[in-house]
């Protein structure tokens, strides 16, 4: 089955960048622009991986994660956190919420792909 990735980021630039990055791979990319919208999409679509921005308006990444982990079906959904804030405090917080990995913005594209590839299979569309 095609893996489903949910990208939650208030920046359209980052969402477009991720769409370009994952376009060559056989996966379905869903998008949301803040934690509240992302939570609704996650509960409805049950993604195989969530790439979640830390700092967003309306509902930030931490608040969204806390809410999401309350749902029995979403307790173990893998999450990679994107953050511009590499402060130790925020990293400790995300670790407590079961975040599988994190990437500090700006990131090298191959770094993010490698981290995603450790969680879900990334197969080229031409091979799929």
């Amino acid at each position: 089955m095609t893996p489903r990735i949910l990208s939650i980021d208030d920046s359209k630039t980052i969402r477009l960048m991720l769409a370009r990055l994952f376009r060559p791979f056989a996966c379905e990319l869903l998008e949301a622009t803040n934690g509240e919208e992302g939570l609704a999409v996650a509960l409805r679509a049950n993604p195989d991986l969530i790439i979640l921005d830390y700092n967003m308006p309306v509902m930030d990444g931490i608040a969204m994660l806390r809410k999401m982990r309350e749902d029995p079906g979403m307790k173990r959904t893998p999450v990679i956190m994107l953050t511009a804030d590499s402060g130790l405090q925020s990293l400790a917080t995300v670790a407590r919420l079961g975040v599988r990995d994190y990437v500090t913005k700006p990131f090298r594209e191959e770094e993010l792909l490698a981290k995603v590839g450790r969680i879900i299979p990334l197969i080229s569309r031409t091979e799929a």
């Binding site: 920046s11 630039t13 477009l16 700092n55 804030d85 402060g87 130790l88 913005k105």
Partner: peptide
Amino acid sequence: ELQDDAAGELANMVAGRVAAKLA
């Protein structure tokens, strides 16, 4: 709109690096 978003994201990333160095 997209250019404004990108400029904001660039500032966010630079500020993140600045904050790490200040820390």
